[in-house]
Amino acid sequence: MSAEALVVAEGLSRHYPLPRTSLFTRAERVRAVDGVDFTLARGHSLGIVGESGSGKSTLARLVLALEPPSGGRLTLFGEDPATLSAEAMRRLRRHMQIVFQDPFGALDPRHRVARIVAEPLQALRPDLARAERRAQALEVMEQVGLRASDGDKFPHEFSGGQRQRIAIARALITKPDLIVADEPVSALDVSVQAQVLNLMRDLETSHGLTYLLISHDLVVVEYLCAEIMVMYRGRIVERAETERLFAAPAHPYTRLLLASVPRMEAGRARRDGVAPPPAEAETGDAIGDGCPFAPRCPLAEHRCRAEAPRAREIAAGHRVACHLA
């Protein structure tokens, strides 16, 4: 990979204190993101897959510098956000925007659509006149398939799919290089989901975007991303090019995820050769020093419970954190 690195994370962590259970004990910490390393190269959209509690949404907020990391280093467009002045940070923010899952919660119900779409310009391009901001907002709305006349409406006048287009327009308006999309289509109906996925794919080419796509849905990630990282309990357990990951998944958790996706061809009978996946982890079981997946892993050995596996490269660009891979 010789392309420019947009995001570099080295040992990136984010820990939260849990509410204390007693006045006299130390507050427990939950490791939402726990020592994550990755590089996101321009033009090489990256998908982060995981289930609830995997830390994927926290990672998105870390990458956008909306939350400070509790450990490790983050480099965005060659700069460390922790050392930047407010003004330099605003300049940096023009290059990266976000699209959320919930098309209802992501738009302020009291603002008109043109104002919502223009919002990033307001703060990031104060040099632009109001009329110019509005003109740009209407232009980018047309690029995502909305009408310019929609600019004076309120969000509640739109369907879920159209709202997601508004959110995408807002993200596009600063002409960013990187868009972090947190479950962008999971709240949408199937037919609308296809429209939004196609739009995101078109914009990737037409606007030179790179996506950091966060999803629980492997199918969506496969459609949009060149490379996939699988997260489990705050750690990256496997990373590979998309085709490679689907063809030769190496981590037992990745294999479990792939086997669990309900397929249209399947039929009622259980698919051949797939053992029933193990029980979902009980809430709050401690993983201690071992592999986070060991309590659910059908292959776990003594070593897995005692020692956390380090990520190893098992093929070019294919890294797995498993003792047995």
Partner: peptide, 18 residues
Amino acid sequence: LIEAVPRLGRGRAGRLAT
């Protein structure tokens, strides 16, 4: 509706029908 569903393992080839 059925064509609009992205399918696992089909990769990045082709656009989704809408």
